[in-house]
Structure formats: structure tokens, C-alpha cells
Computed example of a mutant assay.
Amino acid sequence: MSVIKVAIVGANGKVGRLLVSQLKNNNSFSTPLAIVRTQDQFNYFKNEAGVDASLTDIENSSVSEIAEAIKGYDAVVFSAGAGGKAVERIFTVDLDGCCKVVEACEKVGIKRFIVVSALKAEDREFWCNIKGLREYYIAKKAADREVRDSKLGYTILQPGSLELNKGTGLLQPLNKIEEKASNNYSINREDVASFIVQSLLHPDATVKKTISLVNGDEPIEKFIQSL
């Protein structure tokens, strides 16, 4: 079986960096491509992380420019985000940036696409009154719909509150998600990265699905088997 070539949009984010490391150290994958927006980030991935990099700012690049950067790859992971900086950037990065990458994938024939969204993004009643996050959720909800309407073999991952603790390798069964409400449906970023890897390795179980991710007590392998 040939190795999988993965491009990561938003590779410099906290989930992105963890994912780059996991893919680099997994023999099922070739060296990943880190798509970044600054020269410093480009230099880090090329010189320190030791992976391929592309200086392609999705916020300001055209669909054709993004398509050129990802051409030849088997899968694209979208883990980019404005990071709470300026409300308008939520719409130019989290929403339109995602839409442009989807269009770029379709343009060059890349079928596999994984996007990191947000828990319950489609549930307006859940997020409409969360102070400071309404615009973020509006963008995620709209982006997820664009992904679902695309021609791609997508997986939409919807993690809860992201933590920086060491990964546990354990997730909460989907039918028991509400048991974790008191803990803000939290999940470690390392576990999100690990699940992205497993989603790439198990497309039959994850394609065309929207999957909520919260830490729990079920091993990732068993969790995927239950999808």
C-alpha cells in the first residue's frame, strides 16, 4: 500500500503542529506539507520541523493559488482559524478560507478532505447566546454546510473545548456526549490530532460524516469501529 500524502492548512496552529509531528512519525504517510502564512512559519517547518512547507496565505490567496500549492496530494486537512483576532478574520479565514480550500481540492481532483470545526456548530440554540463566540459559530456552521455540499469525501470533526493536556487516546461515545457538558465537552488537542490521523487511515468509517469529539473512556480504535 502506498503512503498517503497529506497537506495541512493551518499547520502552525496548536492542533496543526501536533498533527504534523504525528504524520511525520507514522510510516503510513509521506512527509506532510505544512501550508502557512508567514515566512517565519515557513522557515520553522522547513528548518526545524523538517517537513515540506508552502507559503500560501489562504486568507488572501486565490483558489487557483491554493490549488497549485496542494496539487498532487491525496488529502487535505483544514485546521486553520483566526484564533479570536478581529471578528472579520473569522469570516475570511474560518469561513471563506475553508470554502476556498474546498474549491481548490475540487479543482485539482483531491477527494479526501478533513475539517476541524466546532462541537454542535449546526445547533444555533446551543451557541447563539455564548458571549464572544457567536460570530465564530456562525462561520463554522456556514463552512460545514459548504463542505457537506461539496463533491469531496469529507469528514467534519467537531471537537469540544480544546485543552493542551497530554492526549489520552480516549473519546466519549457519541450517545453519551451530554454526560460531559459540565466539563465544557473538553478534549485535548493531541487527541484531536490523533483522531485526524485515524480518520485518514479509516476512510470507510469516517467519510461523509460529522463527528463530535470529546474526551471520555473509549479507546479511539473502538470509537471508530462504532461509527
Rank of each mutant, 00 (worst) to 15 (best):
residue 217 D to G: 04
residue 28 S to D: 04
residue 128 C to K: 11
residue 36 V to I: 03
residue 209 K to H: 08
residue 103 E to M: 12
residue 3 V to Q: 12
residue 11 A to R: 04
residue 209 K to P: 04
residue 143 A to T: 00
residue 38 T to M: 01
residue 35 I to D: 02
residue 124 R to P: 07
residue 42 F to G: 04
residue 201 L to A: 03
residue 183 N to A: 09
residue 38 T to I: 10
residue 210 T to Q: 11
residue 38 T to L: 01
residue 153 G to Y: 09
residue 222 K to T: 08
residue 49 A to D: 02
residue 145 R to P: 10
residue 213 L to T: 05
residue 182 S to F: 10
residue 162 L to C: 13
residue 166 K to A: 09
residue 11 A to L: 04
residue 126 F to I: 11
residue 128 C to S: 13
residue 175 N to Y: 06
residue 21 S to E: 14
residue 37 R to W: 02
residue 27 N to A: 12
residue 62 S to F: 00
residue 107 K to Y: 12
residue 109 G to M: 10
residue 198 Q to A: 10
residue 103 E to K: 12
residue 48 E to F: 13
residue 95 L to E: 02
residue 30 S to T: 13
residue 93 V to K: 00
residue 118 A to Y: 13
residue 71 K to L: 05
residue 13 G to L: 01
residue 177 I to S: 00
residue 116 V to R: 09
residue 126 F to M: 12
residue 21 S to Y: 15
residue 219 P to N: 06
residue 98 C to R: 05
residue 21 S to V: 11
residue 154 Y to H: 07
residue 186 S to V: 08
residue 145 R to D: 15
residue 34 A to G: 02
residue 40 D to V: 12
residue 57 D to H: 04
residue 125 E to L: 12
residue 132 G to N: 07
residue 65 E to G: 01
residue 205 A to N: 13
residue 205 A to E: 14
residue 104 A to V: 00
residue 183 N to L: 08
residue 129 N to G: 11
residue 101 V to G: 00
